[in-house]
């Protein structure tokens, strides 16, 4: 009797497995109909909540919902790990999935080039470039360095004399964006410059005088610049940005260093995303960037509109990769 019951129990438990083994084979191919999107989308920020990627994709989701361009739910999920490399890895298991939309920026190129991840932007489906933010180099208010040129002159004399800090790993964005500028300013021995990576408190470290210069994105330190605790020596756009104090920050070009660096952010689908999904999102995003709601958001966060549709975006990615590669080779990373 007991044995029979046990067998029944096991049979019952295995039933769903058997059921789905069938269900699985039926499901797959029938999805390729015009009826898209259907069900929940899966919006992913490949970093923790509260960062730049998170803010970008949440803003996209909110704008699309507010303007009713997309009517299916677009919940945002955070999948942090290794500066976004972990999520790119998991994305590889979702080939030709039509639900996942994720956001990336220069690190998708850096972590591939510097060997952190075997995958790069070629293992995704680029959909559109949307916005750009710029690098800023900040020092504490009473720093002896008054201009970016002072910093570069000091580095030319002794590459160890200015300690640079940032919040991405060595060989990734905050590090390389500074080196690109230093190279353009004619600093030699780029590999001799000390760069220290912090987890998230680089701003307090430069305020406390523990590092000399903090390489970051402008949006992250505006609060401390406005309060007068920090001073931005330069930003890397080709034009002045924003209004008020922000607009007073000189560009590198104005300071005689002919270089720009753009922290662009774009949306990507999973590798081999089906045609219908690609078309849908390219068209939808093209519409979104025209809406007043989106423009208001850009204004609010001080982002530049750098919209590019997929084909141009892909070309841009190729070119950018080549230029990043050059600088990484120069500092001996690759």
């Amino acid at each position: 009797m007991k044995k029979a019951l046990l067998a029944l129990l096991i049979a019952l438990m295995l039933m769903p497995v058997a059921l789905f083994a069938n269900g699985n084979t039926e499901g797959g191919s029938s999805a390729a109909t015009v009826n898209y999107p259907k069900g929940n989308m899966d919006f992913v920020a490949p970093a923790g909540a509260g960062g730049g990627w998170d803010l970008t994709i949440r803003t996209v989701a909110k704008t699309l919902a507010d303007t009713k361009l997309v009517t299916v739910p677009m919940p945002v999920r955070n999948a942090p790990g290794a500066g976004g490399a972990v999520h790119l890895g998991t994305l590889q298991a979702k080939k030709s999935d039509d639900k996942t939309i994720t956001v990336y920026s220069p690190p998708i190129i850096f972590f591939n080039l510097n060997g952190t991840s075997p995958y790069g932007f070629r293992n995704t489906t680029p959909l559109a470039r949307l916005i750009a933010d710029y690098a800023a180099f900040v020092v504490k208010a009473d720093s002896p360095y008054k201009t970016i040129n002072d910093v570069m002159d000091a580095l030319k004399k002794d590459p160890k004399s200015v300690k640079i800090g940032g919040t991405s790993a060595a060989g990734s964005m905050d590090h390389v964006q500074f080196l690109i500028v230093a190279a353009a300013a004619g600093v030699k021995n780029l590999d001799q410059i000390d760069y220290v990576a912090f987890d998230d408190d680089g701003a307090t470290q430069v305020m406390g005088g523990h590092i000399d210069l903090f390489s970051t994105s402008l949006a992250d330190v505006m609060g401390l610049i406005e309060s007068g605790d920090l001073k931005a020596l330069a930003q890397t756009s080709d034009h002045r940005i924003g209004t008020g104090l922000k607009a007073e920050i000189p560009t590198c070009q104005e300071m005689g260093i002919d270089v720009t660096f753009q922290n662009w952010r774009g949306l990507f689908g999973s590798p081999g995303m089906p045609e219908y999904a690609q078309t849908y999102w390219r068209e939808t995003l093209a519409k979104m960037v025209q809406t007043p709601e989106w423009k208001a958001m850009l204004e609010k966060y001080g982002w530049d509109n750098v919209y590019q549709d997929a084909p141009d975006f892909e070309k841009f990615l190729e070119q950018t990769e080549a230029s990043y590669k050059q600088i990484l080779t120069e500092i001996g990373m690759i």
Partner: peptide, 15 residues
């Protein structure tokens, strides 16, 4: 992943 949270948890917890 293959059979979803509810069914896999049902089996797991039963066992």
């Amino acid at each position: 992943n293959p059979i979803g949270y509810i069914f896999s948890t049902f089996i797991f917890l039963n066992l």
